[in-house]
Write a protein that binds this DNA or RNA. Structure first.
Lengths: 138, 138
DNA sequence: GGGGAATAGTTAGCACGGCTAAGCAGTTCG
DNA sequence: CGAACTGCTTAGCCGTGCTAACTATTCCCC
């Protein structure tokens, strides 16, 4: 078995991610917008601070992303009745629909590439996906 | 065996790449600047057009990135003696040093994570690296 | 050889999303 | 009560993606 070189893996990761990132269309949400919506869709209502921490972003950056999502009606922002400093961000039905639509569009490029692989290679990527997730969260 | 979902793989890739990107050296090179320098370091002098195509970016974006690298003395831009329309971009010794420094730092972060894996997991990532490279180049 | 088409690079201007600094409102606690 | 802390926002800088439009040069075909 080949030796795993950090540089090789890193370059592969960045290259394929750059390709993925390039696969956008006009109607599509940006990376950060999509990512925030996906978190809200999966985890339920959160505060801006919690979202910023999760995305490893500073609070002002999250404010801007949320303002943009709010303006498009994809999220709601309501004051927290229990703590006047906090805001509760909630995904709207329209936002949830956008998550689904955008995800589908985004996955299309990758799905086409995966379709060209043989089952064993797909299995490798499935396992790698889990391992990389663990690394990213560490 | 788990099913490979495009979304899972895509999110894993983007998450870990985001973490990697955060590991920049003190020289404060951005991802795109670093990427261009790395290409020049590996492939030798290139034209802006060639760099733009390689990075899958429009020429004006590359112009700006190159201007910034030029201003920092990390690349040189000289007219092509053979074709008056073209420019030849060349990495400087200082630019090559920046590549090495950043690469070392990013590899270090990843190397620490890989060290926590067992050999079988590392083998999976080694194979995935090759598969992803092929996908990125497709 | 001359003239239009194509190519290379740039400039201008917009959008977006990182960041820090600073400010305001609300909460906590000595 | 008042000072310190927390949560969010605003203001403003920067990098980098884009398109449109411009200049300069080269190519190619009549």
């Amino acid at each position: 078995m080949s030796v795993l070189e950090e540089t090789d893996l890193r370059v592969s990761l960045m290259k394929v991610t750059r390709r993925l990132r390039a696969e956008k269309s006009d109607t599509e949400l940006t990376d950060s917008q999509m990512s925030v919506l996906a978190v809200l869709d999966r985890s339920g209502p959160l505060t801006p601070r919690a979202l910023a921490d999760f995305e490893r972003v500073q609070p002002p950056s999250m404010t801007r992303t949320l303002a943009s999502l709010d303006a498009r009606g994809l999220v709601d922002r309501e004051p927290d009745p229990a703590d006047g400093r906090q805001i509760i961000v909630r995904i709207t039905p329209s936002g949830a629909a956008a998550v689904t639509a955008t995800r589908r569009q985004r996955d299309a490029w990758l799905a086409r590439r995966l379709a060209d692989l043989d089952p064993e290679e797909r299995a490798v990527l499935a396992r790698a996906s889990q391992i990389l997730r663990r690394i990213a969260d560490s």
